[in-house]
Design a protein around this nucleic acid. Sequence first.
DNA 1: GAATTTTTGACGTACGTAAATCAGAAATCT
DNA 2: AGATTTCTGATTTACGTACGTCAAAAATTC
Lengths: 345, 345
Amino acid sequence: MRPTVHDIAAEAGVSLATVDRVLNNRPGVRSVTRERVEQAIATLGYVRDVAAANLAKSRSYPLVFILPAGENSFMRGLEAEVRSAMSRSATERLDITILSVPAFDAPALAAALLDARERRPAGVAVVAVDAPDVTEAVKRLRDDGIAVVTLVSDLPGSGRDHFAGVDNVAAGRTAGSLMGRFLGGGEGPVAVLAGSMLVRDHRDRLEGFQAVMSGDFASRRILPVIEGQDDPSLVETLVDALLGQHPDLAGIYSLGAGNRGLVAALEKAGKGRAVCTIAHELTPHSRAGLLSGTIDALLNQNAGHEVRSAIRVLKAKADGLPVIAAQERIRIDIFLKDNLPLEQE
Amino acid sequence: MRPTVHDIAAEAGVSLATVDRVLNNRPGVRSVTRERVEQAIATLGYVRDVAAANLAKSRSYPLVFILPAGENSFMRGLEAEVRSAMSRSATERLDITILSVPAFDAPALAAALLDARERRPAGVAVVAVDAPDVTEAVKRLRDDGIAVVTLVSDLPGSGRDHFAGVDNVAAGRTAGSLMGRFLGGGEGPVAVLAGSMLVRDHRDRLEGFQAVMSGDFASRRILPVIEGQDDPSLVETLVDALLGQHPDLAGIYSLGAGNRGLVAALEKAGKGRAVCTIAHELTPHSRAGLLSGTIDALLNQNAGHEVRSAIRVLKAKADGLPVIAAQERIRIDIFLKDNLPLEQE
DNA sequence: GAATTTTTGACGTACGTAAATCAGAAATCT
DNA sequence: AGATTTCTGATTTACGTACGTCAAAAATTC
């Protein structure tokens, strides 16, 4: 049987109250006594029963998630994951509020952060837009002792506690490697399609992609970046024009959202197979594109993992516990049509 | 405040005991009363507090893991994951025993299964070898009401409750797609290196690989399968011979273990870059091969996910609860040198 | 050595559920 | 109607920890 506080009390020859004081770092224990108790904990190999502890504490963690509004399938999937976490709030003692703000809108995001602050939560998770007033708002939250985790897109220099998302430079590099190898030795330029250079994740992906292309596949010409605002219809218009201008286009790297428009434009022009297309995020549209052969490879960040990691980190920070960085690292998934997970996941 | 059993009792106008009988499917409740209680549960939105329930039950799950012995890095990593789960046994109420058997040895495995049976565990997880006496042993475990999960390599037809591993046919297909695309239009044959055709996972990978190669890249010649018994030194000898026999070799698909020998042979022959190499499982050796450029792509199954999934399923089966299949699906990771996770993970 | 402060012990209640016991009520059978 | 079986209620104890109160003991200061 595993040892309990009672066993420690017996082993150390002290009372339960003293054991409790030591375990929870409460004052009023002489250092010699404290050491005796710690010795007993060590020899018995006592591990606190978290379930019982939480039950006794009946602690709860009020958290706020700030997510961009709009049709972006990835973001809606992210929201679904947050709601799924809310449904588990019973067992995990969470009390989650979701705030919705327009995408790429720094003032609105800053306002939402201050709104979140008013609610005095234990922590806030936010999909960041890289702007000074957002950075400032995050700092004010931290000054109030509220833990802040950036989600999907980071905000370095804001003093956020943690970033729950993938290494986007590495993602861009991976896209570059795949593009270069898939294209082989042929001719024709490669286009890059982003959402907006206002968000850090898109800038990082671009940086990684360009680094690999100019390093390992230097002969390949890269066209200037196109910004589609993650809007399917705008993306479609832009890609229509692109295909018209560059009939010899060899590849497209879509590092943002709005892939529905991209797939539509390519298929309309009959170029689904001819152009090597690498995109981000597994959504119903990008899945269809991959299965039809229009998209050749998909890089993905698992929204569920990110949300769960953000919650774990916020809870840990709220309790003043350390975060195991390695455990919270989010992987970059690569999907081809052959290793696509089934729909219902 | 979230509702408790007391609230339900009050709402339904019954006693705590009756609520408990309904919640735990115990007999002794008239169907009309049962319905009243269920109605109250629904209207109040009651969710059982698992922490408190487990605390009260002080239930524990004795499980047995049967793993192959030997130097195979992936299997050692798998064992490390099981041990890490054991260290969490405190909080998850697990009581895990590990049995070790020689690799690819069906009689030894069957004996180990019967040994496990003697221990009367709630469940057994086993890395299966596909042989009649193993199938038979699994059936006997099931007849005794012991849940059985196959791990990494499946055993269809044995009546096992679940398979915790990747879709190895899809993994083979993915390897085929990557191989075909990376090679482009050049000449030269492709070799396939397996561990043993006695295990299902290797057979499945081969099937998937051959299907894609003969379908999408039909002009490419595939050499007969080489069996290296997952043994680095044997693999090295075999690959030495292979490279001698086929100076124009374009690619190698290594679908088993022993990649240390493969990398050594390729680098010795100065063919690290020239031969497109796709292998399985991220280990210290395969990681080094990927970083040096000798291995071009790595397919991986996350041992930690598999072990945790196996445990979840065994617990659920032991409690007679349903398993959410989608949640237990293990993904096939693709790693290039650009998206390799850091060492410490 | 008396007064003061600090440390420790003893004890109780709470968290939400499980599970057992015993007694009484209701339904079913003969 | 009486006997039997089946349901239901009331109550208690337990799981392992948190946390508070109060009093006693020990250490420290003067």
